[in-house]
Nucleic acid binder design. Structure first.
Lengths: 322, 322
DNA sequence: CTGTTAGCGCATTCAA
DNA sequence: TTGAATGCGCTAACAG
């Protein structure tokens, strides 16, 4: 009817009628039904976001970026968590793909081959943020982990540290190896060698960072630690303190991510900043293009990092190094 | 058709047919369209959650509870943020009410009268978690702020503190006054009087807690601070440290909430635990009943708190008190 | 047990 | 400029 046109702000309705329609609609509290509109239009106005969980600040910063970008796009966000479980992740994709959403954003997904196939079969636009495997055959956005970590390590080297320990993140992410490569190369190019006993693996948590750092400190007496993620770095700061070392005067720590906690901790954490909010925006923008039916200029987008120097790093104490 | 019955696992279809249908469906990758089903059924299978923002752990812990409860209910969660803005909050309610969701959960909403009316008019089931005004005429779930804070304060009194400062939260929440009342009564009943200069207002952030505590400490030399929220308490811990006081040997801090950070901070924060996860579950369960058309047993549900003693509190140093 | 009919609320198309 | 018809994909109710 004409009502439809009026409600959607289309032309083709006299002022008089338009006014009358709006008046009645207001009086009755009429609102267009979303399901019906979607059924007709073949779109739901919803974007699915599959995050690892709903608690890590890492994912939430990205989420904020996505939400900000979507705010102007008349698309709402349906948030799901996979809880690091490949089966659940696939289930979520399957569910969202039943026409519930127009496209999907995934943060650091496991992305088994089966799941990739499912996405293709359902013809569901999808952008991967921070993929675990860089060559996954889907549009994706990743961070320049290599140069980021190289720069973070270089900062410690410039301060005069030589006994630098490294805490790796989870091993099933390629980024863990790429970051470590950046660390190794920075060390090597500075003429320092990496003692394999001063390198430890760890999940991304504060607790495991604390544990691992405590052990590294007591066994090998580094003067600084580089961690592959902020939470582990914050754990390392507290581990140093618990071991009786002041940060930064007696022990330095560099993180990676620049989560909100990094700025709020005491002392502020020196870290390599991933532009998480930007990443969310960029990925959302790409997904919107895909939904509009456009092709992406690049299947693989990459964003840069930035060293943020705060107060968890300082030159080593005299005599402590070497 | 029979297909529909088969797909929905209803009886009334021979094994033979059922098998054939499923086979073909599988081969074609057929999935029932959600919009169409919703249009027909008048339900969307979606629950809207309107949080203040997507970054505070407070809201996220509740969200997790909600998500856990909904996992078994075949309802998905549509997450929205109001960014503390009454207009945006109302807009979100209006939007979700267009048939997009079957019900709404709101966390600490502003909830202007207009918004309440809108909810009623749209006949949208709704449960408020942690309402700003306790008597808002909607089903709601709140925390026993009074006894919680009384208990937290009593803990410091029991340790021997007498010069106890208090940091209030935002003033537009009734809980801020209720918690303060608990503090005041605990003090009064212990024969201690509350020095108004040792009471300060503050927003709920770490930064404002840090600032406020720094000032309280330098001007009035309390031996302990009670904060109306964990983030402010964590700010107070760091403020004490920055003022040269060791926590807890020289200065004690009690928080309120028991966010994940409280356990992770160094030293662990003594705090009054709100069962945030439970609250999310409970509210979600109540909302599901409402959606099923059942009446709630109580319009106003209340949950209790629990004192969690960690390492940010200890007896005052000799001679420091009084 | 299976197939047919109708209608959920909207927007597109075409006719008046 | 307006109104009537049609169909999106599904399911409830019924007829075969």
């Amino acid at each position: 009817m004409t009502v439809s046109n009026v409600m959607n702000g289309k032309p083709g309705a006299s002022e008089e009628t338009r006014r009358r329609v709006l008046e009645v609609a207001g009086r009755l509290g009429y609102r267009p039904n979303v399901s019906a509109r979607n059924l007709k239009g073949g779109r739901s106005g919803l974007i699915g976001l599959i995050a690892l969980d709903l608690t890590s600040q890492y994912g939430l910063e990205i989420l904020r970026g996505v939400a900000d970008e979507l705010a102007d796009a008349e698309q709402e966000l349906l948030v799901n968590a996979s809880y690091h479980d490949a089966a659940r992740e696939k289930d979520r994709v399957e569910f969202l793909g039943r026409g519930l959403v127009d496209g999907v954003l995934m943060i650091a997904p496991v992305l088994e081959d089966e799941t990739v196939k499912l996405l293709r079969r359902q013809n569901l636009p999808c952008v991967i943020i921070d993929p675990r495997r860089l060559e996954v055959p889907l549009p994706r956005l990743s961070v320049d982990n290599y140069h980021g970590m190289r720069q973070g390590t270089q900062h410690l080297i410039d301060l005069g540290h030589t006994r630098i320990a490294y805490i790796r993140g989870e091993e099933d992410l390629e980024s863990t190896s790429v970051r470590f490569q950046g660390f190794e190369d920075a060390m090597r190019l500075a003429g320092l060698k990496v003692d394999p006993r001063m390198v430890a693996s760890c999940d991304f948590s504060y607790a495991s960072g604390f544990r691992t750092a405590t052990q590294l400190i007591s066994e090998h007496r580094p003067t600084a630690i580089v961690a592959g993620a902020d939470l582990m770095a914050l754990g390392a700061v507290d581990a140093a303190r618990a071991s009786g070392l002041d940060v930064p005067s007696e022990f330095s720590v560099v993180g990676f991510d620049d989560l909100p906690q990094a700025a709020q901790s005491f002392p502020g954490l020196t870290t390599v900043r991933q532009p998480l909010h930007d990443m969310g925006q960029k990925a959302a923008r790409a997904l919107l293009s895909l939904i509009e039916g456009q092709k992406l200029l690049m299947e693989h987008m990459e964003v840069g990092t930035q060293l943020v120097i705060r107060n968890s790093t300082a030159p080593p104490r005299r005599g402590a190094e070497g």
